[in-house]
Design a binder for these strands. Sequence first.
DNA 1: TAGACTAACGAAAACGTTTTCGTGTTGACA
DNA 2: TGTCAACACGAAAACGTTTTCGTTAGTCTA
Lengths: 340, 340
Amino acid sequence: MKKRLTLKLIAKELDVSVSTVSKALRDSAEISEDTRQKIKAFAKLYNYKPNNIALSLKNRKTKTIGVIIPEIVHHYFTTVISGIDQVANEKGYHVIICTSNNSFDKEVINMEILANGSIDGFILSVAKETQQKGDYHHLTEVIEQGMPLVMFDRVIDGINCDKVIIDDYLGAKKAVQYLIDKNCRKIGLITTIDYVSVGKLRTQGYTEALEENNMLVDEELILKVEDFDRSEFEIESFLKNKQMDAVFAVNEHFAIYAIKAFQEQGLKVPDDVQVIGFTDGELSKRFIPSLTTINQHGEEMGAQAARLLIRKLENEDAEDEPFETVIIGTSLVERNSTKG
Amino acid sequence: MKKRLTLKLIAKELDVSVSTVSKALRDSAEISEDTRQKIKAFAKLYNYKPNNIALSLKNRKTKTIGVIIPEIVHHYFTTVISGIDQVANEKGYHVIICTSNNSFDKEVINMEILANGSIDGFILSVAKETQQKGDYHHLTEVIEQGMPLVMFDRVIDGINCDKVIIDDYLGAKKAVQYLIDKNCRKIGLITTIDYVSVGKLRTQGYTEALEENNMLVDEELILKVEDFDRSEFEIESFLKNKQMDAVFAVNEHFAIYAIKAFQEQGLKVPDDVQVIGFTDGELSKRFIPSLTTINQHGEEMGAQAARLLIRKLENEDAEDEPFETVIIGTSLVERNSTKG
DNA sequence: TAGACTAACGAAAACGTTTTCGTGTTGACA
DNA sequence: TGTCAACACGAAAACGTTTTCGTTAGTCTA
């Protein structure tokens, strides 16, 4: 690594003091026109750029926000990052991303490292393992230390911080209502086991939509997938001989497995049976038939999270304001797995 | 932001000097057992953690590597990041990710900011716009400054640095050879226009596979998609009345559009016509029929890039070693769009 | 012409570390 | 008793900035 140009070197070269150089470059009125020009010309010629680390140390600000997500190879999370990135860049921040791989330990370590001066604040979605374990000491520590934290998507109720979530409940309800409006009367649900809050909320949306329309909730029509890796088979056997006219699945994978199972039974989607998914990914768009689905607006979620965080960072007063929970709306995207 | 505990504060509290505290915490033999214990106990009690920024400034090392990619909402790039992340973490580095959004200007700005002390080295895949523009001054500047740079996937031939690429040529050849081995004789190619190097190399693999098997290259069977957004229609009309028995597509989107088009013509995949794609994403796995495809091993590419970079960073001698270009092999994943 | 004022610059502290080089206090030994 | 090592610690410099507070010299005012 060659030596970078520093104020000190410029000062020595031009035979002035470091402070003079600094002031000249920042257009201080203290410095005479002459020397200012001279210094600026020199700096430009040799392409001087101030050292970010030194500035961070001095200002006690890094202009960096830390993002911790469970996984990076995941379409939805990348859309969220994209939203964070856009807002952050607009406001002169950059983003450092760490993945927890859904491991509690990695989440803790990553947070500790980043918290030691590398960043100004956190945006995070907790790891599955953390959720199961229920151990949130790393979150509270960061908060107590006075470092702003915004949680998104998978949030923890007991933690006191800004949050951005999507309306799983209403999204699910919207999907089911849509099916009901299409005259479906026997609507199946493919969801996850209850301790995943997302599954719980979407299940709730399903049941309430039925109830509001005076339809019975038939436990026979509800599948709670236990093992993600075996979901294809669980779904296949669940869908046999159930005579449903529609299915609502809580993610796109479950939805296409359902379609596949129906097709293998000789049923046509959407003519014989309609299917709606949740989470609008590549798969939903390109699958044949393409999937009608609930879009979660990941970019907007990321953008909101970033805005909340930066607000706390830049606004002295905002520090004492109460924490917000922003709810990102969902929207239903009509495609070919339901009847037009 | 509350005050963080610093060496100075500990020193004042325990009535010793800053240097004593520092030495005690680093188990220096200079400090007596007594005071060392006392200081360490105090530090642990109040959860002292050294400030990363100060360390970075002192050591002139950030233990951070900067990654610049064209887009983050992109399955392949996320797998590469995942590979980078793993190796980086193993070696005690963390990763800061910036996206160029395929914009030249954003790429330049991001690099300049990161280069000013925030990171120790770069891993990057250049933006499309940069490639078209042919302006690489930001890359050469970084290199001249002595900051290690590793390029991956979309690399620039003229730039002197370590590189990691996949064997597009051989991968394509492998795919076409596979089809030939299955007795296909009229094999179509769906590719991109030539100035995208990837398209060019894969096209080359296609033609050479044919030639090696003494088959003619029929320009009628080659489609160079001009407008990605209209690719579906271009492909559909291209595939009409061509009587092919197989198609090799240079990405998964083209492949599924081909399948779709065939199915609409009443042809069955793989029985009547076989299809192979390139790039193994979610779509290839889940589509029906699932796609036989060339896997690019993104994680391995990322891991290799990270290893190359860290080697330069940690090895004094490595600085003067000649630059390497590592080629990541591809492998063919057999699924249901070709005959078992 | 003394005093006040201003213009132009430099010294030094500060951010939080690590490390080199003292320095004063012991105790052992000749 | 004088010398010397060993021990235990502190002062200060360094990383690269910014900023406050001098300190000069020169100019202006009365």
